[in-house]
Structure formats: C-alpha cells, structure tokens
C-alpha cells in the first residue's frame, strides 16, 4: 500500500515537472523537445504526457507534438525525441476573442490566405507571389507590413532568396488540413469537420 502511495506521489511529481517544462518558456522559442522531456521525466515520459493531456482536456488545452518533417506519419523513437511539444488550445476561438488578443480580422484573413497559398504551393512560394495574392483583398501598404509581422511572429519564414515557407508557429498552431478543407468547401452544405493529426493521445 505504502509503495503504491509512493508511486502515485512520484507520478504526480512527474506531471508537475511536465507542466513546468511545457507551460513556461525555457528557450528563445516556446516548446520542449522530446529528448528534453525524456531527460527530465524519465523513460515513461510519453505516458506522463498522455496523462497530462487527459488532465488538460477539461481546461480546453492539449499537449501538441510537431515533427521537424511534417510528412512523418508513423514516428519512431528518434522522431519523437526530436519532435517539439507544446501546450495549445484544444478548441478554437471566435473573432471577438481574437480581437481582444490583438488581431484585426483582416490580419487573420491575410495570415489564412498566406498559409493556404503556401500549402497549395507545396510548402514554399516566392514572397512576391504571396504579396500579390494578399493584394487582392488587402490595401497594398498593409500587405508588406503584414507579411513582415507574420514572419516576426514565427508563422512564416523567409530565406535569403525571398522564398516564404511555413515556420514553427504555423506547424504548431494551425491545423493545415482543416484550414484548406474549410476554404475549399466554403459555400457547400455540410462542411466536414477534420480532426487534428498530431494529438498525442492518438
């Protein structure tokens, strides 16, 4: 009995450690690598994360994992060690809430268009083409400013040749398949609801 109580106490310590690691930013960017979690939480780190994910569910939060290579479907232990883990919102937020956290509706729409366009171009596209696309709906003077903001916030990345790609925040926060499906199916009745693929309780 005493052994079981001790074991439960240890598990709750691990959960607490996982919360400290995942909620607070330790590096320049948020998120913790799998190997760091393994180092701190021990060999059963994935079970600890599963328990944490279940406990976060009533709070509308979840543990999210993002692989460096988005094409990984069946991850092995090396992929998991290199993956980045985050705490994200489980559900979605409405426009009113988005405004209160500093996003104008046209900034959000611009980001959606830029991400969807880059996805349709297989993950990278020249900046000039993305800006041209955004100019269809946004005033020209805002376009450049918005793209710079998306880059600064980690949603888009730009290489030295002016090619834009989806950066860490888009990969962590945006359910790309759902976004593309929602845009493609816009106006059709019975738009399908798509589920996130990288939930850890999958």
């Amino acid at each position: 009995m005493a052994k079981r109580v001790r074991s439960e106490a240890m598990y709750s310590n691990k959960l607490r450690d996982a919360v400290h690691l995942l909620f607070f930013q330790h590096h320049r960017l948020p998120g913790v690598r799998g190997w760091e979690l393994k180092q701190e939480l021990g060999p059963e780190w994935q079970s600890v994360l599963e328990v944490l994910d279940k406990q976060l569910q009533p709070l509308d939060l979840k543990v999210m994992r993002v692989f460096d290579d988005p094409n990984i479907v069946d991850p092995d232990s090396t992929h998991l060690a290199d993956a980045r883990f985050y705490i994200t919102l489980r559900g979605s937020i409405d426009q009113k809430t988005a405004k209160t956290i500093g996003w104008r509706v046209d900034d959000i729409a611009g980001l959606a268009v830029a991400i969807a366009y880059i996805i349709s171009k297989q993950g990278k596209s020249p900046r000039i083409e993305v800006e041209k696309m955004l100019q269809e709906k946004l005033p020209g003077w805002r376009v450049k400013m918005n793209v710079d903001r998306y880059i600064q916030q980690g949603y888009l990345g730009e290489d030295d040749k002016g090619i834009l790609y989806l950066d860490w925040r888009s990969r962590a926060e945006v359910d790309q398949k759902q976004l593309v499906d929602l845009i493609i199916n816009f106006g059709k009745k019975g738009t399908p609801v798509v589920t996130e693929k990288n939930d850890i309780d999958e």
Binding site: L89, R90, G91, E173, D175, Q178
Partner: peptide
C-alpha cells in the same frame, strides 16, 4: 475558417 483551425500555443 482560419480561427476554426487555429489552436494558439499557450505561453
């Protein structure tokens, strides 16, 4: 559409 597929990171 974006907001439905957006799950911001908690920091």
């Amino acid at each position: 559409a974006f907001l439905k597929s957006w799950h911001p990171v908690v920091e």
